[in-house]
Computed example of a mutant assay.
Amino acid sequence: MCPPLVAEDFDVTWGDGRGKILNNGQLLTLSLDKTSGSGFQSKNEYLFGKIDMQIKLVPGNSAGTITAYYLSSQGPTHDEIDFEFLGNLSGDPYILHTNVFSQGKGNREQQFYLWFDPTADFHTYSILWNPQRIIFSVDGTPIREFKNPESIGVAYPKNQAMRIYSSLWNADDWATRGGLVKTDWSQAPFTAPYRNFNSLTRAGNNNSWLNEELDSTSQERLKWVQKNYLIYNYCSDVKRFPQGFPPECGIGSA
C-alpha cells in the first residue's frame, strides 16, 4: 500500500520556496531562516474530523523557533485547535503547547513535556474533534481532553469549518524562556518534515469517530500524561484567575 501523498491534501502558502513537497508528494518540509519562515494549509475544510500527521521537529538548538500545527476557521470570532512546539536549547526538551479557541476566545493553554525526543524521529500528532469533545493525542496516547461546555454557557467549536495549517516561524520574543533565549541564526535554516497525513471526516463511510470518547485504558493513559508531563494548566493558575477559574474547568474540560 502506497504511503499517503501530502501533496494531494496541502498547498504551501507562504515562505518563498522555503516550504517544499518532496519524494513524489510523500514528504512536505517547512524551513525557517533569518528572512522568513514558511507554512502550508489544507486544500479542504473540515467540520469535525479525526486527523493525524507525522512530524519530526527541528533538531539541535531550536531556541526561538515555533512549529505550529493547528485547525482554524477565519474571521474575528474564529475557532481554533492548536498544537505548538516551542523550540529550546540543544539538549533541553521541547514544550508542547495546546490551546482551544471558540468564538474568538482562547486562553485555554496546557503545556507538556514529551516522553521522547521529538527531533530524533517522526511521531504522530492527532486531533479528534467531534460534537462532544476535542482530544489531543501523541502516538495514540491522549494528552488532553476538552469537553463541550455549552451546557454551562461556554461556546464550543461546532459551527465553523476549519482548515489545517502548519507553520515554522521565529518567535524569539517569547518562545523560549519567555524570550530570554534568542534564535541562533548560525544554525539556520531550521527544517521540519511532515508525512503520512490521514483524516477521517464526515464525507467518509465509517463515522464512528463522531461519537468517539476515551475508553478506560485511554483515560488511564491521559491521567499518566497529565500527572507526569503536564507543566502548565490554565485551570490551576491561581495568579491568573484570582476570582476563580473559568467555568469549563469544572467539567473536566481542562
Results as ranks from 00 to 15, higher is better:
Ile152Asn: 09
Ile127Thr: 10
Gly140Phe: 08
Asn170Cys: 07
Ile134Glu: 09
Pro157Phe: 04
Ser166Lys: 07
Val138Thr: 07
Ile143Leu: 13
Asn130Gly: 06
Tyr125Phe: 15
Ser151Ala: 15
Ile164Leu: 15
Ser126Glu: 12
Pro142Ile: 02
Asp139Leu: 03
Phe146Asn: 00
Val138Pro: 03
Arg133Ile: 04
Ile135Thr: 09
Ile135Ser: 03
Pro157Cys: 06
Trp169Ile: 03
Ala171Pro: 04
Ile135Trp: 00
Asp173Glu: 14
Val138Gly: 07
Ser137Glu: 11
Thr141Lys: 14
Val138Arg: 05
Phe136Arg: 10
Met162Thr: 05
Pro149Phe: 09
Gly140Leu: 12
Gly140Met: 04
Phe136Met: 13
Ser137Asp: 08
Arg144Gly: 01
Ser137Gln: 12
Arg144Tyr: 04
Asn130Phe: 05
Tyr156Ile: 02
Pro131Thr: 12
Val154Ser: 05
Ala155Cys: 04
Leu128His: 06
Gly153Met: 12
Ser166Trp: 06
Gln132Thr: 06
Ile134Trp: 02
Lys147Arg: 14
Arg144Phe: 00
Phe136Ser: 04
Asn159Phe: 13
Asn130Met: 08
Ala155Met: 02
Lys147Asp: 00
Ser167Tyr: 04
Ile143Gly: 06
Ala155Glu: 11
Pro142Ala: 09
Ser151Pro: 01
Gly140Glu: 10
Ile143Val: 15
Thr141Met: 14
Glu145Val: 15
Tyr156Met: 02
Arg163Ala: 12
Asn159His: 15
Phe146Gln: 00
Thr141Val: 15
Trp129Gln: 08
Met162His: 06
Ile127Trp: 11
Ala161Ser: 15
Phe146Val: 01
Pro149Arg: 01
Ser126Asn: 11
Ser126Arg: 13
Ser167Val: 07
Asp173Trp: 13
Ile127Ala: 08
Tyr125Asn: 11
Ile164Arg: 05
Ser126Phe: 11
Ile143Tyr: 04
Tyr125Trp: 08
Glu150His: 05
Ile134Phe: 10
Ala171Val: 01
Ser137Pro: 07
Ile164Gly: 00
Arg163Asp: 04
Ile143Thr: 10
Gly140Tyr: 04
Ala161Cys: 01
Asn159Lys: 13
Phe146Ala: 01
Arg144Asp: 01
Ile143Arg: 03
Lys158Val: 01
Arg133Thr: 11
Gln160Gly: 02
Ser137Leu: 13
Ser166Ala: 15
Trp129Phe: 11
Ile152Lys: 08
Val154Thr: 12
Val154Lys: 06
Gly140Asp: 07
Asp139Thr: 05
Ile152Ala: 09
Thr141Trp: 05
Ala155Pro: 14
Phe146Trp: 09
Ser151Phe: 13
Pro149Gly: 03
Ile152His: 10
Ile134Gly: 03
Lys158Pro: 00
Arg163Val: 09
Asp172Met: 12
Arg163Tyr: 03
Asp172Trp: 12
Ile134Ser: 07
Pro142Cys: 07
Pro157Asn: 06
Glu150Gln: 15
Glu150Leu: 11
Ser167Leu: 06
Ser166Asn: 07
Pro142Ser: 03
Asn170Ala: 08
Pro157Gln: 06
Glu150Cys: 01
Tyr125Val: 04
Ser167Phe: 08
Glu145Phe: 00
Ala155His: 05
Ser167Arg: 11
Gln132Pro: 00
Ile134Pro: 00
Asn170Asp: 15
Gln132Tyr: 05
Ala171Leu: 02
Ala161Leu: 02
Val154Asp: 02
Ser126Ile: 05
Ala161Tyr: 05
Lys147Gln: 03
Ile143His: 04
Tyr165Lys: 13
Ser167Lys: 13
Asp139Gly: 02
Pro149Gln: 07
Gln160Pro: 08
Ala171Thr: 01
Ser167Asn: 15
Leu168Asp: 06
